[in-house]
Amino acid sequence: MVYFPNAKINIGLFITEKRADGFHNIESCFYPIGWSDVLEILPSDKLSFKSTGIDIPGEPSGNLCLKAYELLKKDFDIPPVSVHLHKVVPIGAGMGGGSSDGAFTIKTLNYLFELGLSLEVMENYARKLGSDCAFFIQNRPQFCFGKGDEFSEIDVNLTGEYIVLINPNIHISTIEAYSGIKPKASASDLKETLKLPIQEWKNLVHNDFEQNLFPRFPILGTIKESLYESGASFASMTGSGSTIYGIFEKEVDLRNMFDNYAVWQGFL
């Protein structure tokens, strides 16, 4: 079976407090986008994992696809599988690409072996893989809080809007992103703010990581400003970086402007 694990963007990201377990509580709107990897999982005589496309650092045993398989293997007598991941979504780019791969593996195995797992049960498995993995089980716009693995409904529909995502080939680790962050209560109610027209988001919707990361990586701020100069209604860094996105009212083509970077553009 072949699936296309897609990435997401954060529309607003407030880091509200440091938790006793060392993680941080956040508030954000997670929104799925079309930039996707390619995941093939087939029954096999032995468990195997192969990756192509963007090079994935670390040992294959640490990949979330295999970790997802092992999670389900503990509770269900599922046979070995052959996993082929073609990596397209940049790594360490704030779009949850690896988390999506893990979550889609859970969904694929559930379907392939007719496990009958509910969305809630699959989300609980996904939470064991990483903070934002559970989002990709339902894979629809949601208000995310806690570690990014708790959800509630949010009234945001960007269907028909055009998005351009720019990744300047900078890998930002989670540790580096959180270095120097001072958590604070969000200054506004994100759910209510996102009910406003997109053109009003610019001065109201923020990603708290930008304040620390833009001085360290000036190109990020330059890209954001370039998107606004090109007509974006709203532009922001997503997650803990380093991808910057712009949302436009109509289709644009900015690939030539950022031809040295990884670019994805398309309708939401």
Rank of each mutant, 00 (worst) to 15 (best):
V2W: 07
F4I: 02
N6F: 05
I9G: 01
L13K: 12
F14N: 14
T16R: 07
K18E: 12
F23S: 08
F30L: 13
F30D: 06
Y31M: 10
P32A: 07
S36I: 02
S36D: 00
V38W: 04
S48Y: 07
F49K: 10
K50R: 15
S51Y: 04
I54K: 12
D55W: 00
I56E: 04
S61V: 05
N63Y: 09
L64C: 09
Y69S: 00
K73A: 14
K74M: 08
D75Q: 13
I78G: 04
H84Y: 07
H86C: 01
V89G: 02
V89T: 11
A93Y: 07
G94S: 12
G96A: 06
G98H: 02
G102N: 05
A103Q: 02
A103V: 09
N110L: 03
N110Q: 09
E114L: 05
L117Q: 10
E120G: 11
M122T: 06
N124E: 15
L129Y: 07
D132K: 08
F136H: 05
I137C: 06
I137K: 01
F145H: 13
F145S: 09
G146N: 03
G148T: 07
E150Y: 01
S152I: 06
T159K: 15
E161P: 00
L165E: 03
N167H: 15
P168N: 09
N169M: 00
I170F: 04
I172Q: 04
S173W: 14
T174W: 10
I175S: 15
I181C: 11
K182N: 14
P183D: 07
P183I: 01
A185V: 12
S186Q: 13
A187P: 00
K191W: 02
K191G: 11
L196K: 14
L196G: 02
I198Q: 04
N203P: 06
N203V: 01
H206V: 09
H206A: 08
E210L: 02
Q211G: 01
L213F: 03
L213V: 04
P215F: 09
G221K: 10
I223S: 03
K224C: 05
E225N: 15
S226R: 15
L227W: 10
Y228K: 09
E229H: 13
S230N: 15
S230Q: 12
S230D: 12
S233L: 15
S236I: 00
G241D: 07
S242P: 02
I244A: 06
G246E: 07
K250Q: 14
K250E: 15
F258Q: 14
W264S: 02
G266W: 04
G266R: 10
